[in-house]
């Protein structure tokens, strides 16, 4: 990957998430299964937490209720503005925010006891390096948690095609095998895995997305024609006269030795 391509990709992320800053927080599905993250992370009141690519701060603010302190970092200033607003609305004082990248992270080695990220890996160009950075800033004995889409390998290419049309900052959703290999080869110990599905209504998702002109109809057609076929791996179906689908999310956590 040349620097030029990396810079162009970074611009696509900021562009998409500046537009998504408000709609993203308004999708009810994004509140689902927070409890899975709380339980998998085993967060306690002693924890210093880092939320990488924190977006509008949903996870960071929820973890702030269970942890000593949470730091959220995101590359998109509009997302950090939303995160600050959420923090103020919830009267949370144990949260701070930075603007910065996932690779590299601007923190000293071993700064946190719990380092997590949700729904970011499918935007990354180098997930292995990102996980290595998360592990670097985690102290020995601390936990590193990643939650993201995990698609069946036979359906991965079609899913990526759909998502890149919907959100040009999408890169690649890890397959379940890639996700497992990422953690197993990371040096993290006592790795655990869980998962859940996020139910999404197609039209609501399209309203919250910013595809290129003309691509919206292609996305609608792809998902609608996948009902009963499931070549995309999202179980597209008709429910209450609407097209709905379920994005499979994997949650991996490991301990730094």
């Amino acid at each position: 990957m040349t620097q030029h391509l990396a810079d162009a990709h970074q611009s696509r992320i900021i562009d998409q998430f500046s537009r998504q800053a408000i709609p993203f927080t308004q999708i009810p599905g994004h509140y689902d299964a927070m409890q899975v993250l709380i339980e998998m992370s085993r967060v306690t009141k002693e924890d210093l937490v880092l939320d990488v690519a924190c977006g509008p701060g949903m996870v960071a603010c929820e973890f702030a209720r269970h942890a000593h302190h949470v730091t959220g970092i995101d590359i998109t200033p509009a997302m950090i503005e939303q995160a600050e607003k959420r923090q103020q609305e919830q009267n949370l004082e144990n949260v701070s925010w930075q603007i910065g990248t996932a690779t590299p992270l601007p923190f000293a080695d071993g700064s946190f006891s719990l380092v997590l990220t949700r729904y970011s890996y499918h935007h990354l160009l180098a997930p292995t390096e990102a996980l290595a950075e998360m592990i670097r800033v985690c102290r020995p004995g601390g936990r590193v948690l990643v939650a993201d889409v995990a698609i069946e390998s036979s359906k991965s290419a079609t899913y990526d095609r759909l998502e890149i049309l919907r959100d040009p900052s999408h890169t690649h959703a890890l397959t379940r095998e890639e996700f497992s290999a990422l953690f197993l080869n990371s040096g993290l110990q006592e790795c655990r895995q869980s998962g859940y599905g996020v139910d999404i209504e197609l039209e609501a998702q399209l309203k919250a997305s910013f595809p290129k002109p003309g691509d919206e109809e292609i996305i609608r057609k792809m998902v609608t024609e996948d009902v009963g076929v499931d070549s995309i791996g999202i179980n597209a179906r008709v429910g209450d006269h609407r097209i709905v689908y379920t994005v499979p999310i994997a949650v991996y956590v490991g301990t730094k030795s």
């Binding site: 970092i73 590359i75 200033p77 600050e84 925010w97 930075q98 603007i99 910065g100 990248t101 601007p106």
Partner: peptide, 11 residues
């Protein structure tokens, strides 16, 4: 690295 409105911009 500027601090804008209390937010460090670490880019």
């Amino acid at each position: 690295y500027p601090v804008r409105e209390g937010i460090p911009v670490m880019l």
